[in-house]
Design a protein around this nucleic acid. Structure first.
Lengths: 199, 199
DNA sequence: GTTGTTCTTTACCGTATGGTCCATAACTAG
DNA sequence: CTAGTTATGGACCATACGGTAAAGAACAAC
């Protein structure tokens, strides 16, 4: 009596969230209608609302999952194997290479969402802020490591260089959306890393 | 008979376009309704449609005007008075300073529009591409000038440095939207320029 | 004045929107 | 079986959407 299970769910929550994410990723928040979401997931409105709340809650839910994944990915690279400089290279060039390989060039969902909603949605902004602060911290730590092993000029300001790398990564992301060619994107990432190394 | 003037317009086209631009700037394309536009301009739908066509045409019209203004502004700075390095500094720091001063942080309308619509609107992408290609060219030319007067290492690749500056500018723009502090934004612009100068 | 043309205003259209409700189905506990 | 609970799927709602049509107003030419 205390625990009646009720009718079991007919869908895989992970799969549904993935479909929803694809929709928001493809069209953005405002341009995605509830019908788009029900079409993409196969669920009725009732199920969607019962399980995740309204459109906005669902969006934030998806965004949180995405942010966690991405942040873990960045952390994995920057604290992974290889020298500190190699890890920085892997990350920064990875951004450019990712776009070179993806013809659709949808970019990062968190970046897109921030760009679309930053003026009118403080919740999205706060997610963006904490996330990129975390990435910044990881970058700075990695730059310091590279200074310790002598790859990067020890007298340089690690914070300054870490933030610069963060900005360059985001700049590449944007320029990719303008249709800048893959080689040019890679050139930018090379340039940024070249500036880092001792000279 | 050949030239009947008909009823004269009751509005100032420039003023209307400015109001429309503010709306699109504040809310983005998809989130701006026709009613928002009629409210902002004071015009009826009929007038708006008669004068500028539908929502999309009106948007592109506004975007073109904005792009021209911005590009002229960049050109004015990069080909204006002062040494080449001073002009580059003025431009790059100007991006950061602009955000520091604007509490709303709406950013550049062309950037916002590109971010929102690049996946589904080739017309917007093509406008972005030509614009940023033009800015890139101006930057590269200015870097070359700085190399000629000895401020920047003459053996460096001017194209590479110009593109790097472009990316950093766009990176700053994005990070501003995430709420990064003004001093940090300025620090990034300083870092980029510091990398340029001979060492 | 009349005619021709253009602009403005309002009413209107069909549809899509985000969101709710409810009858019913599917399950567990007893 | 019955009672309790939860999920489903479609009906339903008010409203907002982008866009059109039509009637009248304001002007120039004559």
């Amino acid at each position: 009596m205390l625990f009646s299970m009720g009718r079991p769910r007919n869908f895989d929550e992970k799969q549904v969230l993935e479909s929803v994410r694809e929709q928001f990723w493809n069209q953005g928040y405002a341009a995605t209608s509830l019908q788009d979401l029900t079409d993409a997931t196969g669920l009725g409105k009732g199920s969607l609302y019962g399980a995740f709340g309204d459109k906005r809650q669902l969006f934030l839910h998806v965004l949180d999952g995405y942010r966690d994944e991405q942040l873990n990915g960045v952390r994995a690279v920057l604290t992974g194997p290889g020298t500190a400089f190699e890890r920085l290279t892997l990350l920064v060039e990875g951004v450019a290479a990712g776009f070179t390989e993806d013809p659709q060039r949808r970019g990062c969902l968190l970046v897109n969402s921030t760009s679309e909603l930053h003026s009118n949605d403080p919740d999205v902004v706060s997610r963006a802020r904490t996330t990129y602060q975390a990435v910044e911290d990881l970058l700075i730590a990695c730059v310091k490591e590279a200074q310790d092993d002598g790859t990067v000029e020890p007298d340089a300001d690690a914070q300054e260089l870490g933030r610069l790398l963060l900005a360059v990564m985001q700049g590449i992301e944007f320029l990719a959306k303008t249709g800048m060619g893959g080689p040019a994107l890679l050139q930018i990432s090379h340039a940024a890393l070249k500036q880092l190394s001792r000279h």
